[in-house]
Computed example of a mutant assay.
Amino acid sequence: MGQDIRGKIAYITGGSSGIGKATARQFAKEGIHIGIIARNPDKLAKIKEALAGYDVNVVTCSADISKQEEVKTAVQTLEQQLGKADILINNAGISEYGNFQEMDEETWKHIFEVNVFGTYHMLKEVLPHLSGKQKGDIFNISSSNGLKATAGSTAYSASKFAVQGLSEALMQEVRTDNIRVFTMNPSLVATELVFGDELEEQNEEKYMQPEDIAEYIAAQLKLNQRIFIKQSAQWATNPF
C-alpha cells in the first residue's frame, strides 16, 4: 500500500503562480502544511488568502532564490513558523528565448542564477531537514528542454540540463537516507511563464494545465517509501 501524506510539511518555491500555486492548492486538499517562497509579496498574500479555507498551516516568505542569504532567511522563517520540511518542491524558474548570438551575458547568468543556483540554495538549506529525519522527498521541476534542447533556448536548455545532472547525482547520494529525488520534465504547460497576460485565452482542453502536474506530484508522494519515479516526462496528449 501507499503512504499517508496528511500532516506532512512541504516547502514550495515559486508557489504564488503556475505549477507552484497549483501544487500548493493540491497539497492543501491533501492535508499537507505548506511553506511558500516567491518574490512577489502581493501574489503571496493572494495565495495565502486562497488557502485559508483548508485545514492546514500556510506560511509565506518573499525571497529571491538566486540569493543565498535570502533563501537562508526564508527557510529559517518557515522552519520556525511551520516546522522542518518533509517535502521540497524546487519549482521556481525563469526562461528567456532568443538566438545564442543575440542573448547577452547578463541574461545567461541570470537564468543560471535562478534555475540552477536557486535550486542549489534551497537544497543546501533544506536537505539537512530531510537527512535529520532520515526520510523525505525532493521534486526538482526541470523541463522537456532539459532532455532535448531546442533552437532559441540555449541558456534555458543549458540550465535545465544542469538541473538534470544535479538531480541524478544527488539522488545517488541521498538514497541511503531514505530520501527520494524526483525529476519532472513537463513540456508546454499553460502558465504565466509561457503565455504571460494571455493565459486565460488558452484552451484547457488542449494545453496541459498546472493542476495536472500538481495531481501527479501528489500521486508520486503517495507511493510506498520504498519506491520512487526517478525521472518522468509530462506531455499534452493533443495540443495541436
Rank of each mutant, 00 (worst) to 15 (best):
T119M: 08
S66D: 06
Q76L: 13
A74N: 07
G196Y: 04
W108C: 05
A63R: 09
E102L: 08
L123P: 03
L88I: 10
N40L: 02
D55A: 15
I34F: 12
N99R: 14
A63T: 01
K133N: 03
R39W: 07
A10H: 03
T191A: 02
V174Y: 03
Q225I: 13
M171T: 14
Q81A: 14
L223W: 07
D64P: 00
S16P: 12
I12T: 05
P41R: 07
N90P: 13
N224P: 10
N99S: 12
L193E: 05
G14D: 02
A233P: 05
F240M: 07
F228A: 06
V181D: 03
K48G: 15
V174L: 05
V116L: 12
F182M: 04
N185D: 00
I47Y: 11
Q3G: 11
E96V: 13
A92W: 13
S16A: 14
D197R: 08
P186W: 05
N185H: 06
Q101F: 12
T183P: 08
M208A: 07
D212S: 14
A219C: 05
S144K: 01
Y97N: 08
S232N: 04
P128D: 03
A10L: 05
Q26R: 15
A149E: 03
N185L: 02
A24H: 02
V194Y: 03
T150L: 12
N115W: 01
A22N: 08
G20E: 09
A74D: 10
V194E: 13
L88F: 00
L199T: 08
I111K: 03
E215L: 14
K46S: 11
Q202T: 14
F139I: 11
S167T: 10
D104H: 05
S131Q: 14
E211N: 11
A169E: 09
L221M: 09
Q81G: 08
N57P: 10
K21H: 14
Q68C: 08
K46Y: 07
L44K: 06
G7I: 06
V189D: 04
N178P: 01
K67W: 07
